[in-house]
Design a binder for these strands. Structure first.
Lengths: 193, 193
DNA sequence: GTCATATTATGACACGTGTCATGGAAGGAG
DNA sequence: CTCCTTCCATGACACGTGTCATAATATGAC
């Protein structure tokens, strides 16, 4: 286990979600991780692509884990509660650490979803992992799988958009707005189909 | 009226929404616009910041105009119809021109919403202009202004997130999903408050 | 015509980028 | 000890970046 390697991946994720992929230089990452400069070349022979690829996968894992932790936080889990749980983390992030850092997946999407960079696949994998975790949580609440997938798409899309809006406006209001607006729709059992 | 200047702003918007702000170089924009290189310095003494700032404002205007054109496309306007109208343009974009280009506002958010670039204000202005136009359309359908603002936030956030998801997955499915899922909520008059 | 203004041309500067080559230290296995 | 692998140090290369300085040309007013 090499601490330097992990720290680089983590730092890459942090810098990417703050300034974007292109604006994040390898030298910045190395410095941010307090890692020796020569180690980057050693641990990431694939260069920057490999680094940001792993950073995106790490972000996907993190988001998935966060979603999976929801049931332990409440006595009666509901879809709307899960969505609020996802949004809560971002409200905390923004109120405590400011609006500097956004979502790595969104940053990756903006910077390299249009081209055919080798990282696009890992970007897709990160999003899939996350959405899959959300879907599983919904299924655990007896939402039919097919509909759970649709709700997961809706939740993640809305959340990402709200993160974008919140960062531009520098207020968490959009997050609370979408949470309360979406709640009745998410919990309406009448629309299980 | 100088055609070169307008073309540069337009080209900047196109390149930004495809590769992001940082990855878009002024030389690229000049070439894409078939503009003389010396003209950039002449028309944009503020440098790249001024260029992408105007590109973002242009994008906001475009989105606002598109929203305002909705009533002319239908006989009985509804909130859900407006949302479908907004999403339809992106489905057309993606199916006809591929997933290369996303939303300039989202790209601007990812790349420079975290810092204190002088462009952040124009980014905010672009989003405000767009959301204001959507709000006005909702008000025109007799949605109370306060709730119209909340619905506009929800619609734009969800749409942007769906655009992100669609581009990563390279399919328009997320767009159709959020449109059909959000429809009943948007048109439920019971929740006018 | 003259003259001022608007537009374009050209070349360079200082800097940051990702990547590579090369060599040295550290540490465990035999 | 030697040997080998893992890890780190250092310097450089070729290239692209935004910006600027300077001058040439067009355009139109008078």
């Amino acid at each position: 286990m090499s601490g330097a390697r992990e720290r680089m991946v983590y730092s890459a994720a942090q810098l990417v979600r703050a300034r974007g992929v292109t604006a994040t230089g390898v030298r910045d990452v190395v410095a941010h991780a307090d890692a020796p400069r020569g180690s980057f070349q050693h641990y990431f022979p694939g260069g920057k692509d490999q680094l940001v690829g792993e950073a995106l996968l790490w972000s996907g894992d993190f988001a998935a884990r966060w979603a999976a932790e929801y049931p332990a936080t409440t006595r009666r889990p509901t879809p709307a509660g899960l969505f609020a749980h996802l949004a809560r983390q971002w409200k905390n992030e923004f109120t405590r650490r400011g609006f500097e850092r956004g979502c790595p997946v969104l940053a990756g999407s903006a910077d390299l979803a249009g081209g055919d960079s080798p990282v696009t696949e890992q970007l897709r994998a990160a999003l899939d992992h996350w959405e899959h975790a959300v879907t599983d949580e919904l299924v655990r609440m007896d939402v039919p799988r097919r509909r759970a997938r649709r709700l997961a798409t809706l939740m993640i899309s809305t959340l990402e958009g709200a993160i974008m809006t919140a960062r531009i406006r520098r207020t968490v209001a959009p997050l609370t707005t979408v949470v309360t607006e979406l709640a009745p729709l998410l919990d309406s059992r009448a629309r299980d189909r």
